[in-house]
Design a protein around this nucleic acid. Sequence first.
DNA 1: ATGAAAGCGCTAACAA
DNA 2: TTGTTAGCGCTTTCAT
Lengths: 346, 346
Amino acid sequence: MDRPAAPTRRITIIDVARHAQVSTTAVSKVLRNAYGVSPTMQAKVRQAISELGYRPNAAARAMRGQTYTIGIMLPDIRNPFFADILDGLTARIAGTDYQVLLGPGCNGEEAEARVIHAMIDRGMDGMVLVAPISTRAYLEQVAGVVPTVVVGRHGRSQTYDTVADDDLTGAALVVNHLADLGHRRIAHIEHHETTADCLAEMPNAIRAEGYRQAMRARGLADEIDIASTRYNQEGGYLGTRQLLARPVRPTAIFAGADIAALGALDAIAEAGLRVPDDISVAGYDNTTFAAFRPISLTSVDQAGHEIGADAARLLLDRIADRNRPTAQIKLSPALVVRRTTAPPPA
Amino acid sequence: MDRPAAPTRRITIIDVARHAQVSTTAVSKVLRNAYGVSPTMQAKVRQAISELGYRPNAAARAMRGQTYTIGIMLPDIRNPFFADILDGLTARIAGTDYQVLLGPGCNGEEAEARVIHAMIDRGMDGMVLVAPISTRAYLEQVAGVVPTVVVGRHGRSQTYDTVADDDLTGAALVVNHLADLGHRRIAHIEHHETTADCLAEMPNAIRAEGYRQAMRARGLADEIDIASTRYNQEGGYLGTRQLLARPVRPTAIFAGADIAALGALDAIAEAGLRVPDDISVAGYDNTTFAAFRPISLTSVDQAGHEIGADAARLLLDRIADRNRPTAQIKLSPALVVRRTTAPPPA
DNA sequence: ATGAAAGCGCTAACAA
DNA sequence: TTGTTAGCGCTTTCAT
């Protein structure tokens, strides 16, 4: 009869050292590819490690400084654009000794702080914060504690590196495209966060500003019309309902995010209007769903994969040297024209 | 002039103890709401904690057994159904001292094992594995090390708890719905994993089997037609191209997942066919995108939120008592009929 | 090139 | 009720 297996103690570095007839120091050095181990020692230790199936205890390592873990905070797991960023990140990290863990999507500043703290408490070696809504001061403070890369926030910092897309240009691409098609009443759906503090740095604000600038540049200053909701499906839906209720309806809607554009399409369908015959719609992010044929949404491509890869690179560099000057990477967006935009109805 | 701030040492339990003029034990007890602390002590310690802004070091705690961290493994962050599960999970965990961290999406058995191991190494107090593809033996082994709940795999285990949907019934709901509409040539797109070992436990296999059984029950055994691809957009697209190329085209396609149904819609649109006039399409999971009006996909609702909440509950229970008998929760699916299914063309 | 030993921050067994 | 103290597994000086 089997006895209930004693809760098997995990193999430690001591077991490995004993099995390989060497010191724990030697094992530790091999684990870290540290300087000063003979090939013979290497071989002995590696064999013992694989024979025993040893795996280093991350907590114990953390107590001495390193966890080999990188924490990623994504604000909204449902927005497929963030999945693209994540792919780029993980692809770039894959070759290293680091492991990626994600903080769960969080809404609101408080929840965001909780997730960030949780990651710091758990000794992350570095963090990537995607489109955080915290104040700049808070981000600086966080970055002072652990190497941090902030994705999708404009404005340079002395403490953290940034990767962002040129949202000003991106918004202009859309407006110009629609204006070129002959539209004049081009409305915009923005994501509006109440915290004024960091507003100027947020991509949503920059896109709205880019929209305004481009409208003015095209002599359409009088047609500027913004519905302030949120970058999610419901936000797009509600914003569009607002816009469709205007005395003079817009002939084109530029939603600041694809996911909001989906909501816009929803509201438009509900109103019995056709896209693009009655009204044109453009999004932002060029997510998988924009490319999806039955939707086929005109959108702005942000190269999420590249953003993620760049963020990973910057983070690894900063972990390697915490005193290097901070870098700001700004990527250029590209317009992808599909079937939801066309000339306005005659 | 500011001097570069000395890399501020983190506040430890010792600092708190000193500041509150008590022992570290006292602080530790307060932190854990442990038995045997006077209200006075409580107050003193709590005040010191907040005055100093102390936060426990998770790594140090981990070395003594607990990290207050729960690891979730999601196979595919792009499938919005998994976001529903995650929501249910986090909602249930929110009130507790535990923090949720996610392993990044992983494809393939090896990547899955890497993520699972990474979580074990980092001392997760518990894990939720969503639709894992590892062998059953491996899952049992993992669950032997750390409390584990497996979501979306059928078959009971002595070691881990499970939450799953009744996929056999779910598939039958779809087939019966289509057959009731008058369809006979009802095809299925399945997710086919090569690892035969755990195949029988996987929801995709069960759905395919449910499809077969229901088809036979309806006297449509001769019409059984399965395209084996994968549960993602491309899989649905390719599978549908196969099915549309049949000498006699199916009049309805039952995709085993909404995300695959999207790919199916794509292929159908490309072929110049209309849904549901020329061909009906049904999915599975009732994701946000199925409900999305311009798509309006008939689908099977799995109540992802509830699945997640149940998984969280089981996990917390198991963490509290590792020896309690394992539980198997099976939830009943419901059909949500929308606009992609209709009687076959005359 | 190799090893002995201190100590990271916390918990828990034990002593007072 | 409160405090003292021995580790948890690892990295890192510092000898050898």
